[in-house]
Structures are given as C-alpha cells and as structure tokens.
Amino acid sequence: MSVNSTILSLPEEELVHPGNRACAGCGLSILYRIGLKALGRNTILVVPPSCLTVLQGLYPIAATQLPCLNVTFASTGAAATGVIGALKALGKTDITVAAWAGDGGTADIGIQSLSGACERGENFIFICYDNEAYMNTGVQRSGTTPQGVITTTTPIRGKLQPKKDVPAIMAAHNLNYVATGTAAYPLDFYDKIMKAKTITGPKYFHLQTPCPAGWGFDPRYSVKIGRLAVESGLFDLYEIEHGEFRLTGASLKLLGKKRQPVAAYFESQSRFRALTEEMIADIQKQVDEKWAGYEQKMAKKMKE
C-alpha cells in the first residue's frame, strides 16, 4: 500500500448518522462508516436486501447521507450497471458508483449479475461484506459459511462444504483490482478504497465483518475476533492489483512470524462448536500450507 492513513488523517465528516439500526458490535457498521468516508459524498450506492438495508433505516428515515438505490436481491451488479449507464448517458462522469452487498447477495443469489457486470468491465466498486451466513434472515448457511459452522440450516453437524473463495472467482474475471478487508483493520480498508477510486473498471472488495449474533460471541469482542482471524492466518488481508497479488497490513506483517493457532479463533465463537479436534487439526494443516506458499512466494520475490 502506498498510502497509510491514520485515524487522525481520516475525514472528520461522518456520512453515516449515529443511531442507526445496526446490532451492537456489528462489524459491518465499522466498515460502512469508514468506507463511506473513503468513498466520499460524490457517490451513488446500490444495496440489495441485507443487514445493510436495515442498518440504513426504515422509511422515511435514513442513516446514510449518500444517495442510495435499494434493489432486488439478485440484481446488484446489473443495477450498478444501470446507474453507470444513465450517468454516462447524462454526461455525469465524476460520480463514484459503489455496490455494497452481503455474502448472499454476492456469492450466491447475486453472483450472476456481479459476474455479468465485471465481464462487461463496468466502472464501479463492488463491496461484499461477508458475515459468513444469511444474518439478516436469522443465520442460515451461505456459500461463504466456513466448513463446520453451525447455522440455523446446518443446526447439528455444521456446514458440510468448504467456504466459496469469492475473491478468487472475481480475480478470475481479470479485474484490475481485487482486495480483502476486515472490520478489525478499518484503515487498511480505507486506503484500499482510496486506491480503488483511482483505478478504472470493476473493483471487488471482500470484507470479513464479525457478527456477534450470528457467530456467537460477546459484542465487545468484534474487533478482537476479527484480529484473531487475521493473526491465525485464516483470513488474509491482500490485494490483487492488475493481476499482482500481495499481502497487506497485518497479514503482511505476519510473514516470517508465529501465527496464533486456529483453535484459538474457533474457541472464541459458539458457531464452531461442532468442529472436532481432527477437523481443527486438518484446518490448521491447510492454513499452514497456505502460509508456506506465501512465504515461498515472498522468498522468490526477494531473490528477484
């Protein structure tokens, strides 16, 4: 990252009103507040049904100060396209168009219109906040729910299938910019949005947003748990800029360092209670292999 914002360098102006409808400890609300500061006032938002729909307020009261189009669940990418098309037709070329969807609205029901918009090369920022289940409807499994997680539709054995790797799917669209972010490190997200605004074409963000109600932890630990996901090497902060992958922020700093055991992360949330010791050991092995790959890549880069 070329820019490194500090909490003091962020714009003071708040674009999200206080007293919105987010739950206590909502990871999304942290990144929504910081993300809107980065996007700025000259932005049009497109939002499908999700916790964000509720967070933004019930008619006629709105928590956001940006113009926002609420759209049907499956249509976010196409709706963003429509806004962009109209702005082009009307000769308004300086407005940022940002779609902000949950994991269901991105990875599952929303993936077709997202893929279509990205294939067409639409100039917009798509932000997926991944709380790893259908939280707005009451914690049902989604394509990005990790393996083994207890949800209301995987109530006993946990989810049997592994998490869908959406950033990799979006990277396969040959986008100019793909990045991850987490509510535990909002400044990393801020800097990445600022960078994305300078890049043309579709930009994809995948954000991990801890959810106390859905994940089963005390709301005061949202940031702590988000950090543990990064420190254990389970969730990685990275960006893929014009095809080039690099770790960023706290994940970059983990290279060559000892990571937290994944078991510590799993123990912090009741949703992982169905995981057996064997499963945890297996996941630890997968994470170790992934990180060995990162280390190798880094070593190769240093040589070059």
Binding site: T53, L58, Y59, A62, C68, L69, N70, V71
Partner: peptide
C-alpha cells in the same frame, strides 16, 4: 441524497 425503495 435520498434512500430509494427503503424498507417501509
């Protein structure tokens, strides 16, 4: 700015 098609 306006929030269109909000939950009503």
């Amino acid at each position: 700015p306006a929030n269109l098609n909000t939950v009503t």
